[in-house]
Computed example of a mutant assay.
Amino acid sequence: MSEFITYESKCSDKAGVRYIGRFDFSDARGPKFAWPASTIYAKFYGSSVSTKIRSLGDNYFIIIIDGEVVINSLKLSEGEEKIFLLASELILGEHEVSIIVRTEFYLGTAQFLGFDFDKGKILTPATPLNRRIEIVGDSISCGFGNEAENREIEYSPKYDNSYLSYGSIAARDLEAEYIIVARSGFGLIRSYDGNKLNVLPEIYPRILPDKDDTWQFESFIPQVVVINLGTNDFSSGFIPNREEFTVAYIKLVNKVHKNYKEAKIICAIGPIIDGNALTVTRDYIKNDVVNKLNKDNEINNKWLYFLEFDHQVESDGYGINGHPSLKTHEKMGRSLADFIRKILK
């Protein structure tokens, strides 16, 4: 006899659904999530699947069935709580379903209220992948505006696609699970508009970016962490104080290293920043952070690396406001995957 799984009971139980990313389970109805590329995954037997989601902002999701994108842009507006039919008339048998957040946390938190497999049943999820990656960054890492056809298009979150960001692309290339901890406009010591309160290190430890509850880092231990910060610190021709910037960067690196002792940390720059800002950023991060910390540690236990992405080119197009296009993200993803293969041998 087939098992019917309700939204509020077994479907929301962690034993039947896998959550890849930072999820808050304090609400009995279902977990809340906000960081880009947060993923909800289930394996099931049946021929159809629906989901129920509550949105606390204008959120967009990607739906994947059996490894194929079946819905590229599922939108929920502020305050909506809806049931969505994700797939029907599938061949009766075993299938996989994933819900992935396309957009950023400032657009609003979402709450997963469960899957419904009609006359089918949920199965024990597939074994988690052994490889894990964490991406820490800003709008570039979020995939901001990467689906826009050109830089002049008026911004809308429908053009953001974290699933097609460089970190996501590299992770799939490496068959790795990944999480993205990033926010548009935020920097290491100042935001794009110069606000020193809106900085990524301040919210990095949180489960949900707008709440103080701390993430349990042992819940997701990556082999590689990529930090791609600095573009907003150097925005509009501003050059941060060398000591202030590098001390803050080293503090973040040490925090990551403390949480993930065995992880390789990649300090990346690019592909937007150029000119004098690029020269100075490279100097600060490569010399005062990576080279310095490597000298301070045992040579045979190297865990810190520098990676500079190629600068974006006009022939590859641009996303909104000159952000990387889908083609640029593809190139970055391949470069990152190759670099990770090299350092992990």
Rank of each mutant, 00 (worst) to 15 (best):
S2C: 08
T6C: 07
K10Y: 12
D13R: 09
V17Y: 05
R18D: 13
R18F: 06
D27H: 01
A28E: 12
G30V: 00
P31C: 03
P31F: 00
F33G: 06
K43Y: 01
F44I: 02
V49S: 05
S50V: 07
K52W: 01
I53G: 01
L56H: 14
N59C: 12
Y60V: 03
F61Q: 04
I64C: 03
S73M: 12
S77T: 11
S77G: 11
S77R: 13
E78V: 11
G79R: 10
E80L: 08
E80P: 07
F84E: 14
L85P: 10
L85N: 14
L85Q: 14
L86R: 04
S88C: 11
S88T: 15
E94S: 09
E94A: 09
E94R: 11
E96K: 11
E96D: 10
E96G: 06
T103V: 08
Y106C: 14
L107E: 12
T109Q: 12
T109S: 10
Q111W: 01
K121Y: 10
L123S: 05
P125T: 06
P125H: 03
A126L: 12
A126M: 10
P128R: 09
E134S: 08
I135P: 03
C142M: 07
E147A: 03
S162K: 01
G167T: 03
S168N: 03
I169T: 04
L174D: 03
E175C: 08
E175T: 09
Y178S: 08
I179R: 13
V181Y: 02
F186W: 10
L188V: 03
I189D: 01
I189V: 11
S191K: 10
D193P: 09
G194W: 11
G194E: 14
Y204G: 04
T214C: 10
W215Y: 15
Q216S: 13
E218W: 07
I221T: 10
V224A: 00
V224D: 04
V226Q: 07
L229R: 00
T231K: 03
N232I: 01
D233W: 04
S236N: 14
P240K: 02
P240Q: 01
E243A: 08
E244I: 01
K251D: 15
L252H: 07
H257Q: 15
K258S: 14
N259K: 06
Y260K: 00
K261F: 10
C267G: 03
C267A: 08
I269M: 12
I269G: 06
G270F: 01
I272H: 10
G275F: 06
L278Q: 13
T279K: 15
V280C: 09
V280K: 14
V280T: 15
V280A: 09
T281G: 15
D283R: 10
I285Q: 00
K286V: 05
V289K: 04
L293E: 13
L293I: 10
K295H: 14
E298H: 11
Y305L: 06
F306N: 02
F306V: 00
H311S: 14
G317P: 04
I320V: 13
P324I: 09
P324W: 05
L326W: 07
E330I: 11
E330W: 06
K331D: 07
K331W: 06
M332K: 05
A337E: 04
D338T: 08
